[in-house]
């Protein structure tokens, strides 16, 4: 019996998740669906900053200060630490307090004094990560929202690979594929138009992952200036004169996601960052002019 393309979807991590995969045995689908859903739920329960029982909430309450963390958390924190250094401190998972002073539902800029106070609780170094344990100071809070979704995509893709399955995992636009589809040399992935519904470009993905960031996800507009939800840890504001959307292709979704996020945060220096990282990318500036290292 030849393989057929099957799909299933569920809600996870604040967005839709879709999995497409080639299956020979019809009855495998429910089993795989359960296994993949369980894995996403596990990561949600572990790294959610909203669930009081999550590991991350325990860490944020200081309950796990100077306690050896598990290997997975250690791996993620080491990765964060590396990103923080390499991005010139732009990538910082402690900016959570900024989201309490920015309200993207009403067109008002935050009170500068509130912003100043919030900035005092920001700084990855205040977590005192030593490669094994944390020791949170200055009421700092960790928010892994910027990487857990990408990591979850990689985890699901790894599970497919371990089963020898051909498939594509899409979690709110962050995508990874286990290998090229059976009938074509690559999966066709559409890139969202930053200003209107529909696609602005299409890329071929035979292996690896693609992830993107854009100023269109959550933003407010004041006097013609767009303020998006990607806030810088140094100013507390979004980067001025940056890209409006960036998509990066990498061997895994985590890498693609962080490189594109940092490109957004770097503002005018975003293009130089992308060139320096030497990963395939597609980016659009405010005038929707395309910058790209690949054919799209």
């Amino acid at each position: 019996m030849s393989a057929r393309l099957r799909s299933f979807g569920f809600k996870a991590m604040g967005g839709p998740c879709n999995v497409h995969l080639w299956l020979r045995e019809e009855d495998e689908l429910t089993k795989i669906e359960k296994e993949l859903t369980d894995e996403v739920r596990r990561l949600e329960a572990k790294f959610s900053r909203f669930q009081p029982s999550s590991l991350l909430s325990q860490i944020n309450r200081g309950e796990l200060n100077e306690v050896s963390l598990d290997a997975e958390t250690v791996g993620l924190f080491n990765y964060v630490d590396q990103c923080f250094d390499l991005s010139g401190h732009m990538f910082d998972p402690t900016i959570g307090s900024l989201h309490r002073v920015w309200d993207f539902k009403i067109p008002n800029l935050p009170d500068p004094r509130d912003l100043e106070r919030a900035l005092q609780h920001i700084g990855w170094k205040k977590v005192n990560w030593d490669g094994r344990t944390v020791n949170l100071t200055h009421n700092v809070q960790i928010d892994l929202g910027g990487i857990v979704k990408e990591f979850a995509v990689d985890r699901l893709c790894t599970l497919l690979k371990e089963k020898g399955l051909i498939g594509l995992v899409n979690l709110s636009g962050d995508i990874a594929v286990s290998q090229a589809p059976e009938d074509k040399p690559a999966w066709k992935v559409a890139i969202q138009h930053p200003r209107k519904a529909g696609a602005i470009a299409e890329v071929d993905l035979a292996a690896g992952a693609i992830a993107g960031s854009g100023d269109y996800e959550r933003f407010i507009e004041i006097d013609g200036v767009r303020y998006c939800h990607l806030l810088r840890p140094d100013t507390g504001y979004p980067a001025p004169n940056g890209f409006c959307a960036v998509s990066v292709i990498a061997e895994n979704c985590l890498l693609a996601g962080t490189v594109s996020t940092v490109a957004m945060l770097k503002g005018e220096l975003g293009h130089a960052w992308l060139e320096e990282m030497q990963l395939p990318y597609v980016a659009f500036d405010q005038a929707l002019q395309a910058y790209s290292s690949i054919e799209v």
């Binding site: 290997a71 997975e72 791996g75 993620l76 080491n78 990765y79 630490d81 590396q82 990103c83 390499l86 990591f151 990689d154 985890r155 790894t158 990498a250 061997e251 895994n252 985590l254 890498l255 962080t258 490189v259 320096e276 990282m277 030497q278 990963l279």
Partner: peptide
């Protein structure tokens, strides 16, 4: 930079 970043990404268990 990419080499370093890719290395620490792959060091996460389960990647």
């Amino acid at each position: 930079k990419l080499t370093l970043l890719a290395k620490s990404a792959l060091a996460i268990p389960g990647m």
